[in-house]
Amino acid sequence: MKRFISIMLTLQLCIASFTANSESINYYVIAKQAMPFQITTDDEQHSGIVSDIIAKIFMDKYTVNYHVYPFNRMISKLEAGGEKNWVTYGSPNWGSVQAENLSDKPIYTVSHSILSNAKSDFSYTDISDIKDKVFVLLYGFDYPTLQPYIDSGVIQELRVKDYAAAFRILDKMPNDAIFIEMTSRIKYNLKIQSKDLSSYHLQNFSALIPTYPIYLAFDPNMDSELQLFINRQLSALEDAGTLTDIINHYI
């Protein structure tokens, strides 16, 4: 009898451990550079388009463990395997671990723009217009369609750690520098830093960086039932108009 009780207790502990693991997901967040998709605060509060979608999907169903890292370090963590059943966001255009296993539906369509200082008369029509400009780009992010121009020396790049630094360079070098970034992130960061958009000139840059969709990106070894649950929840959020509401809240 004692042996039976011991076996049953062991089984219950194993089941409890499995349940705890199956009801927990690991969400990876880029620190400081991913607003408005992922927004973090000093008191460890999370918001933003992707973070709000994650919160809605797993609300009352799973425990979300947040892992916040600078971009390059986050990618290194994920390429090394990451925590079990991890999720973040990605795109087929980005390659590597952020493209290996994506949600069935996209969550947003990304476009890129050129931001220049309004004091400059700069206007973009083709590559010849930007050959003498300093391209301000964020550390860590790759731009595959720009890389051949960077490698050949046609484009002179200047990497910065955040948006505040990018805006400062545009203000100090109005006739020489241009900032290339996602349109949504430019607009959001200008707003939160109380920058007036009329002080800058925003031009579409889809000729060199075409628009593309972004998705939720999953652990390549994610539990199949969990991935099915996420995709179903994401579809329900889209059908209910919740995805559009979340996006419109930030952009």
Rank of each mutant, 00 (worst) to 15 (best):
Ile5Val: 11
Ser6His: 08
Ile7Pro: 02
Leu9Pro: 13
Gln12Glu: 05
Cys14Ile: 12
Ile15Phe: 14
Phe18Gln: 15
Thr19Phe: 13
Ala20Lys: 14
Asn26Asp: 15
Asn26Tyr: 15
Asn26Cys: 02
Tyr28Trp: 12
Val29Met: 04
Ala31Cys: 07
Lys32Ile: 08
Met35Glu: 11
Phe37Pro: 03
Gln38His: 05
Gln38Arg: 09
Ile39Arg: 00
Ile39Pro: 03
Asp42Tyr: 08
Gln45His: 15
His46Gly: 15
His46Val: 14
Ser47Trp: 12
Asp52Cys: 13
Asp52Ser: 14
Ile54Ser: 01
Phe58Thr: 05
Met59Arg: 09
Asp60Tyr: 15
Lys61Ile: 09
Lys61Gly: 13
Tyr62Ile: 14
Tyr62Thr: 13
Val64Asn: 04
Asn65Ser: 08
Asn65Phe: 06
Tyr66Leu: 03
Val68Tyr: 04
Tyr69Phe: 14
Phe71Thr: 05
Phe71His: 11
Asn72Leu: 13
Met74Lys: 14
Ile75Ala: 04
Ile75Lys: 13
Ser76Lys: 13
Ser76Gly: 03
Ser76Tyr: 12
Lys77Thr: 15
Leu78Phe: 08
Ala80Asn: 11
Trp86Phe: 09
Thr88Glu: 00
Ser91Lys: 02
Gly95Glu: 04
Ala99Val: 03
Ala99Pro: 01
Glu100Asn: 04
Leu102Trp: 00
Ser103Asp: 07
Lys105Pro: 09
Thr109Gln: 05
Ser111Phe: 02
Ser111Met: 03
His112Arg: 03
Ser113Glu: 10
Asn117Leu: 04
Ser120Arg: 06
Ser120Ile: 08
Asp121Asn: 12
Phe122Tyr: 10
Asp126Gln: 12
Ile130Met: 11
Asp132Val: 09
Phe135Lys: 04
Phe135Met: 09
Phe135Arg: 01
Val136Glu: 00
Gly140Phe: 02
Asp142Ala: 10
Asp142Met: 06
Pro144Trp: 02
Pro144Leu: 01
Thr145Tyr: 12
Leu146Asp: 00
Gln147Trp: 07
Ile150Cys: 02
Asp151Phe: 10
Gly153Lys: 10
Gln156Met: 07
Leu158Trp: 08
Val160Cys: 00
Lys161Asp: 09
Asp162Pro: 06
Tyr163Val: 08
Tyr163Asp: 12
Ala164Tyr: 14
Ala165Cys: 04
Leu170Lys: 12
Lys172Glu: 12
Pro174Trp: 06
Asp176Ile: 12
Ala177Asn: 00
Ile178Leu: 15
Ile178Cys: 09
Ile178Phe: 06
Phe179Thr: 05
Phe179Leu: 07
Ile180Phe: 02
Ile180Ala: 06
Glu181His: 05
Thr183Arg: 01
Asn189Arg: 02
Ser194Ile: 05
Lys195Met: 04
Leu197Phe: 09
Ser199Pro: 13
Phe205Cys: 07
Phe205Ala: 11
Ser206Asn: 14
Ser206Tyr: 11
Leu208Pro: 05
Ile209Met: 04
Ile209Phe: 02
Ile209Asn: 03
Pro210Thr: 07
Tyr212Ala: 06
Tyr215Met: 10
Leu216His: 08
Ala217Glu: 00
Asp219Asn: 06
Asn221Leu: 11
Ser224Asp: 07
Glu225Ile: 05
Gln227Tyr: 04
Asn231His: 06
Leu234Met: 06
Ser235Arg: 06
Ala236Lys: 08
Ala236Cys: 10
Ala236Asp: 07
Leu237His: 01
Glu238Ala: 14
Thr242Met: 13
Leu243His: 00
Leu243Trp: 00
Thr244Ser: 05
Ile247Glu: 14
His249Asn: 11
Ile251His: 07
Ile251Asn: 07
